[in-house]
Design a protein around this nucleic acid. Structure first.
Length: 201
DNA sequence: TGCCAGGCCCTCTTTAGGGCCTT
């Protein structure tokens, strides 16, 4: 049976929960067998104020959040949706902080590692001019997924990028890169991965 | 008062600094 990976993206009110930032929207694209097989997206009301810069970036306004379901309800739903699937995000350090902080408020804990498509693409696509999610997807010729900086559109972009990286590893190196392999690969230095996979050749 | 992340990677490096990436 093919492995499922839950590709996650948060929109938030700021850079870090340690600074008081809270999520405003979460999206999940579940990949399995080389395709996206399930999706989750919801706005959420955490009672936090959305600064004008963030509102302009994401299109998510304070007015939209006033009518959104409460954060605890959404986080419980999305945690149940993800279940015991391993996790992945683009710049996972960012999304992992919010995932862990919000689950912690519910008295729940993450049980699986996060893989990171930013670290993986820096290692496997060093020739890309930019490793921003949208730029990478355009550069790699991957399909558009909707409005950038909305949670599900970005989660689907990261999912498509991950599938592209898995296909690249298989086509060039005959490596079936499951989540465990991706996590191991991203922990090696970029230089070591280049040597291991002969990316400089 | 003023400021506020943090981890990764490259290089004019390693006794460090700056850019990238996420909102």
């Amino acid at each position: 049976m093919a492995e499922r990976i839950a590709v996650i993206d948060f929109e938030t009110t700021g850079m870090s929960p340690a600074q008081g930032a809270r999520p405003t929207e979460v999206g999940v694209a579940m990949i399995e067998g080389g395709v996206i097989v399930a999706r989750y997206q919801s706005l959420m009301n955490a009672g936090a104020w959305v600064p004008p810069f963030i509102e302009q970036l994401t299109g998510i306004s304070n007015a939209m959040l006033r009518g959104a379901p409460p954060v605890a309800q959404v986080m419980a739903e999305v945690a149940d949706f993800v279940g015991d699937a391993p996790l992945l995000a683009h710049n996972a350090a960012f999304d992992m902080k919010f995932w862990d902080a919000e689950l912690g408020l519910l008295g729940r804990r993450r049980t699986r590692d996060f893989a990171c498509s930013l670290l993986l693409s820096r290692r496997l696509l060093p020739e890309a001019p930019s490793h921003k999610l949208g730029s990478l997807n355009s550069w790699a010729g991957l399909p558009g997924t909707g409005q950038a900086h909305r949670a599900l559109a970005d989660a689907e972009m990261a999912a498509n990028l991950t599938l592209h990286l898995q296909q690249l590893l298989w086509a060039r190196h005959e490596i079936r890169a499951d989540h465990g392999y991706l996590c191991a690969l991203q922990k090696l230095s970029a230089a070591k991965v280049r040597g291991l996979l002969r990316l400089d050749a």
